[in-house]
Computed example of a mutant assay.
Amino acid sequence: MEKEVTYQSTNTYDTLNTLTSNTKTVWLVFHGIGYLSRYFIRLFQSLDPTENYIIAPQAPSKYYKNNEYNRVGSSWLTKENTSIETDNVLRYIDAVVTEEDLPGNIRFIVLGYSQGVSIASRWIASRKVYCDDFIMISGGFPKELSKNDFSFLTKKTKVTHIVGENDPYFEKAVVAKEIIRVQEILPQITFKTHSGGHELDITTIENI
């Protein structure tokens, strides 16, 4: 018999730069499967440190990536107990944002890369998060989300989806169908590509 228990848990997250009165943009960035937040956040080091503050939550499930047991990766969700795990992750993100106590007069960007797209989009939809920009990179959009989940967003929220032209995880026919579906849900979305594969190319988002 499978049972459930509720308990308090602690998790880490990483930040880059310092939140000051000079900060213009706060980025909440969600890494993909296999990453740790402290490594993922380094991809944003080229952004102006005086104007940009980056917050990278850490996926809670850790695992060893090789047989030498010296490289650690992490995952946000699996097909096992997805609903419960999603609720746990979303409550963790709530706690991160509450802890950071972000000012209201800044540009707020939510970015998801690869598996992080599913977390970013579910968090925005379930918490009705008003962000200035929502950026999805090389990730699939959750199948359960619909246009009603994002009806609170206005056209002021800029939505961008970016995928590499040589991404081995995305077949062109599948991408074409996804574009149609996501456009119906988020009609203000813009689709972009870069010449690489399944990676976050910082140059594609620096001027968004």
Rank of each mutant, 00 (worst) to 15 (best):
F150K: 06
I84P: 01
I162P: 03
L19W: 08
K79M: 10
M1T: 12
T23C: 13
P103D: 07
N70Q: 11
I106E: 06
W123K: 07
K172W: 06
T203C: 04
I119Q: 01
T12D: 02
E178N: 12
E165S: 14
A125Q: 02
I93W: 01
M136A: 00
E206Q: 05
L90H: 15
M136L: 11
P57Y: 04
K177T: 13
V129C: 05
G34N: 11
N166M: 06
G112A: 11
I124E: 00
S83A: 15
L16Y: 05
Y113P: 09
L19H: 09
I109V: 11
N67E: 15
V29D: 05
N148F: 08
N22C: 01
V163G: 02
P103W: 12
C131G: 08
L90K: 12
V163Y: 10
D133M: 01
T86D: 06
T204W: 12
I41Q: 08
S37Y: 04
Y130V: 05
T193D: 01
S21G: 09
Q183I: 02
P168W: 11
Y130I: 07
R122G: 00
Y92E: 10
E99F: 12
E68K: 12
I109P: 03
Q58F: 03
D132N: 13
S9I: 13
S75I: 08
T18G: 02
V129M: 06
L43I: 00
I41L: 10
Y92N: 05
Y35H: 13
V26W: 01
D14C: 08
N67W: 14
H198R: 11
Y113S: 13
P57H: 03
Y35I: 02
I179K: 15
H31W: 06
Y130D: 02
Y92K: 15
L102W: 07
R91T: 12
V129F: 07
D167C: 04
T82L: 06
Y92A: 14
G139H: 04
T193Y: 10
E206L: 04
A120T: 07
I208T: 10
I41E: 09
K62N: 09
V159L: 04
G34L: 07
R107H: 09
Y64L: 12
N88Y: 09
G139D: 12
K155I: 08
E85G: 05
N66L: 10
V72S: 09
N81R: 07
A120N: 14
F191V: 07
K65R: 14
T160V: 13
N67A: 13
Q115C: 11
H31S: 14
L16N: 08
T98N: 15
T15C: 10
V175M: 11
L47Y: 03
V117C: 14
N22Q: 11
V96S: 05
K79T: 15
M136E: 09
A173C: 07
I55V: 13
G104Q: 15
V26P: 00
E4P: 00
T18I: 05
Y13C: 11
D101P: 09
N81K: 12
L19G: 12
I54L: 08
S118R: 14
G139Y: 02
Y169D: 02
I205Y: 04
T193G: 02
V159P: 00
F170G: 02
I137C: 01
W76H: 04
W27L: 13
R71T: 04
I205S: 01
E68Q: 15
